[in-house]
């Protein structure tokens, strides 16, 4: 592959994925509100989730059919797989939030493999940071409300059972781990998975196109056969990777949501 790159000048359009020029420029005073392709996709994805959920539940039937089944399953999944095992019965008030979180992330992730879109909006840290920040705000708020600020901070920074001498060090480690590492890893885990997945798919698709071009260019030569075979291999692998990416898209949405639930459960349980 590197030989091919060197020889033919294969340049997958990776840089472009990180530079998005505004399609429509709006500035509200000093606040930039320009709309670029990720923002368009973000708004489309958000509207899509809202529309599907609204359409499915606008007139709920006792015996659900069609889309209502799907929407109910969308809620049930979050409850059965995330809230019940992680938080328990008290977690029911987080049902709407965690459902919104899961389906928001999942939809923006899955755009990665939707034809003509082919771009996961969660590729942009601008999406993952606010979601991670919200998780931080929520679990700290839950801790404050459940135990009171002092007791909560004390239980986080000074976990019982450690020798008194190491508490100064422990408090620093716990503070960093709880209030910085948690949101940071939430955001970066999702972001890194989406960037890597998207770029790999991009390389394989661009590679397939490039190898086909080369095969046509060197028509009726040994190099054409060579390029053609590799184009086929790259294409087949890209299909396999699409399958893998679908799994990763769902998994990352699930991981983000379940970790948020775990942090909420931890903050609720600090009093115990």
């Amino acid at each position: 592959m590197s030989a091919l790159l060197a020889a033919g000048g294969f340049n997958p359009p990776i840089d472009e994925q990180f530079r998005w020029a505004p399609i429509y420029r709006i500035d509200l005073g000093p606040i930039p509100l320009s709309i670029n392709r990720p923002v368009v996709l973000l708004l489309f994805g958000t509207a899509l989730v809202m529309f599907v959920f609204w359409l499915g539940m606008r007139r709920p039937q006792l015996v659900p059919t069609g889309l209502q089944n799907a929407v109910e399953a969308g809620f049930e999944f979050v409850r059965k797989e995330i809230i019940d095992p992680v938080i328990g019965p008290d977690g029911i008030k987080w049902w709407p939030y965690l459902t919104a979180l899961f389906w928001f992330i999942f939809t923006l992730n899955i755009f990665e493999v939707i034809p003509l879109i082919n771009f996961p909006v969660t590729f942009r840290s601008s999406i993952t940071w606010p979601l991670a920040g919200l998780s931080l705000i929520i679990f700290v708020a839950v801790g404050f409300v459940t135990s009171g600020p002092v007791r909560y901070l004390k239980s986080v920074l000074f976990p019982p059972g450690a020798p008194k001498l190491i508490y100064p060090l422990l408090a620093v480690i716990e503070a960093v781990s709880t209030f910085f590492v948690r949101p940071f890893t939430l955001s970066i885990r999702l972001l890194a998975n989406m960037i890597s997945g998207h770029l790999i798919l991009l390389v394989f698709w661009a590679g397939t196109a490039y190898l086909l071009q080369q095969a046509i260019h060197h028509a009726l030569s040994l190099l054409a056969i060579f390029n053609g075979v590799f184009a086929l291999v790259a294409f087949v692998l890209s299909i396999v990777l699409v399958g893998l990416e679908i799994v990763i898209d769902a998994l990352q949405a699930y991981v983000f949501t379940i970790l948020t639930a775990v942090y909420i459960a931890g903050a609720m349980g600090e009093e115990h």
Binding site: I31, L42, F104, S126
Partner: peptide, 17 residues
């Protein structure tokens, strides 16, 4: 993060929620 996307992203999720 890009600030414009950050604002749109936060707003979108808030509205969705």
């Amino acid at each position: 993060p890009a600030l414009n996307e950050l604002i749109w992203g936060t707003l979108s999720f808030a509205i969705l929620f």
